[in-house]
Design a protein around this nucleic acid. Structure first.
Length: 371
DNA sequence: TGCGCGCCTTGAGG
DNA sequence: ACCTCAAGGCGCG
């Protein structure tokens, strides 16, 4: 079953890189709450924007297949702000090389950077996930139970700008609405890339495009609520005080504590969002984002004393849970958290025969429980 | 200084 | 129709 998938119109021929399914499950990695920009356009086929190009991905037992869609002619979208850097001429595209690894900018793909390198970088295929799963399973019985059903959950190495502003949108919000909001953000402020069927694809907006003067009002109109201010003001703050996109990228080379502290100076960024960005864009594998969900999991499976007395995830709870999981899972604790989070998403809940009987039992006994 | 509480937008789901 | 709650952050006491 390692045959080449059928070709798509106006797209490059399919190519593959070796990647066993145990090392990567596309569905879990791309729709498990890390990124909000991929959709399953056909069963098993995932289409989305990465490094300024539109890709479709699929996988067989041993290989990850990819094709790149043809870009439309240069048409600057209306809202791409005048503050934007001058468009780079083809053939002289921006190159980031802060870390020695391939630098993937969200705005434009670099000519000369092999698409397979972009994918290896994005999926961090140099990390041996099976070995990590083995280690976590050895020290953690609950993880061992989860791991069987949720193999191949990798932490993506995302573009820092896209990751930061996506997770600012997640505050007090739910997955379906987050996905819609980010789609609106890209459609309104991002460069249009192409159209497939009826769906248009846009690059993630530049900092300049989000920082423009009337952007706050536009975002309010688009239904971002109080997050509108966070987005426009954080875009300005990144440009003004953190050195722009390159400055964010540079946080990959500093310590977890330094990166986290820098992010927390931005409006709309607290401990939770900062940890998400540290983990998913800034190479801080030890960062454990703690939300209400992970807190419930922690209390239920790892000890009720975790975050005891609190009614919500306060700074103290965040610290306690994070430190607990780091001591349990080690330097890649954030990667293990991603597996647990994925497993807890409602859409992945398997029809559990025990759940019904538990529920029925609870209902029967509820009068005595409640009184 | 550390901590917890109420508020902020919107809409999906019960 | 009504309510609650959602991958939270922030100002305040």
């Amino acid at each position: 079953m390692n045959a080449r998938p059928p070709p798509l119109p106006r797209a490059t021929p399919w190519r593959a890189l070796p990647c066993p399914r145990a090392e990567l499950r596309l569905d879990l990695a791309l729709s498990g709450g890390q990124t909000f920009r991929w959709s399953e356009t056909n069963p098993g086929y995932w289409t989305g924007v990465l490094a300024g190009r539109v890709w479709t991905l699929t996988q067989s037992e041993e290989q990850l297949w990819y094709t790149l869609h043809e870009e439309e002619k240069e048409e600057v979208s209306k809202d791409e702000d005048s503050l934007s850097e001058p468009p780079l001429k083809k053939g002289r595209r921006q190159l980031h090389s802060e870390t020695g690894r391939a630098g993937v900018s969200g705005e434009r793909i670099q000519d000369g950077l092999d698409p397979s390198q972009i994918l290896q970088d994005y999926f961090q295929l140099h990390v041996n996930l099976s070995a990590l799963y083995q280690g976590w399973s050895y020290t953690d019985g609950h993880f061992r139970n989860i791991a069987v059903k949720f193999p191949g959950v990798r932490v993506l190495r995302q573009d820092p700008v896209e990751c930061l502003f996506s997770f600012i949108c997640t505050s007090n919000n739910h997955l379906s609405r987050i996905t819609n909001m980010i789609q609106h953000l890209c459609q309104s402020f991002g460069r249009r890339l192409c159209q497939l069927d009826t769906k248009t694809y846009h690059a993630f907006p530049s900092l300049q495009a989000m920082a423009g003067k009337d952007k706050f009002a536009r975002l309010r109109e688009l239904g971002f609520g109080y997050r509108a201010r966070f987005i426009s003001e954080s875009a300005r703050a990144v440009l003004k005080t953190l050195g722009g996109a390159a400055g964010l990228q540079h946080l990959r080379t500093v310590s977890y504590e330094q990166a986290r502290h820098a992010l927390c100076t931005l409006p709309g960024v607290g401990a939770k969002v900062a940890d998400c960005v540290c983990l998913m864009a800034l190479d801080k594998a030890q960062a454990v984002p703690v939300d209400t969900h992970i807190w419930q999991v922690a209390k239920r499976y790892y000890g009720q004393e975790l975050g005891m007395g609190a009614r919500s995830v306060t700074e103290r709870v965040h610290r306690e849970i994070g430190n607990f999981f780091r001591s349990l899972w080690g330097p890649y604790a954030g990667w293990a958290q991603a597996v647990l989070f994925c497993a807890d998403l409602k859409k992945y809940e398997s029809p559990d025969p025990d759940a019904k009987s538990r529920c029925a039992k609870l209902t029967q006994s509820s009068p005595s429980v409640l009184t």
